[in-house]
Design a protein around this nucleic acid. Structure first.
Lengths: 157, 157
DNA sequence: CTCCTTTTAGTCAAAGATGGTCAAATTACA
DNA sequence: TGTAATTTGACCATCTTTGACTAAAAGGAG
């Protein structure tokens, strides 16, 4: 385990051990680990992805930053996580998504309005593209939304 | 958050907490924050925009001033209709959509959570497809969502 | 009144400070 | 040995800060 990316990953993970988010300076971190600044991006892009439960925000320019937010481990989140892995998969139809959203509405994870927004945004009509990829795009997007929902109470400053 | 612009923004926002408008003196404020007077313009131009619900008036010369007024949109449907036809068009970038959503948030058409849902559902990352069609799909879907918001703004919640 | 001076605010572009992207080069691994 | 993962650097994009120059309003001297 001699590679820098893994080391940087560990460093960030440990920074997140007792906090739900951490702010880093790309340049400082790069200097600290004696690597190219873009290596920080590489680590973030490959290890701190939405898929793995991380959300990122950043700002350039004076006093810029990169914020990494870890999705919390609550009951609701565990539930959402389950949905993501078990029910959504790599492809999903509009109808199946509707069923899942009904369940989420029932369990007070989303409001009626939020359900309708998601349904409309990812409807067959909205995703005007070949059927071969439509269900794939919908699955990817829907999973991203569900991940974001996990965090919707925490990350909003 | 060490940058002066953010500090000045906070100062002005807090001045507006209990009033719908505030008068400032550009030079005094610049002196107070030890910055260039034009920095005040920078803050005003980037943070107190119409998109974010502010309008400005000013006068030069002796006893000149800058007045910042907080406004809010009222006619939701006409406003959304306008957005759909004028601002979205056939293609839209993720960034531009974010700006529009900021405005909608400011005008209480969507909540922070709803904004985040739309942003995530139609983000570049979610719409994993060639760039040539990404902005088109986003525009189509976003307009559908806006239309839905229009119809539901009366009945929902 | 008219012109000049003073007092404000506005514009714009350069410089500085960060982070982002991409692809070539290198290294690790199956 | 060939493919995937990592490392690096050149170049790009965005946000902030500063200052020189411009524009407008008010007040006063004549």
């Amino acid at each position: 385990m001699a590679n820098i990316s893994d080391t940087i990953e560990k460093f960030i993970v440990s920074s997140l051990e007792n906090n739900s988010s951490v702010d880093i300076s790309r340049n400082s971190l790069a200097e600290y680990f004696s690597c190219a600044p873009s290596q920080i991006n590489y680590v973030l892009d490959t290890r701190f992805t939405l898929d793995r439960g991380y959300i990122k925000e950043s700002k350039r320019g004076g006093s810029g930053f990169i914020k990494i937010i870890k999705v919390q481990n609550t009951d609701t989140n565990a539930y959402l996580n389950n949905l993501i892995t078990d029910s959504v998969g790599d492809e999903i139809t509009e109808k199946r998504m509707g069923q899942i959203l009904d369940k989420l509405l029932n369990d007070f994870v989303v409001t009626e309005k939020e359900k309708n927004i998601i349904l409309m945004a990812l409807s067959d009509d909205s995703l005007s593209m070949p059927f071969t990829i439509k269900d794939k795009v919908r699955a990817k997007s829907f999973k991203n939304v569900l991940t974001k929902l996990m965090n919707s109470s925490k990350s909003d400053e």
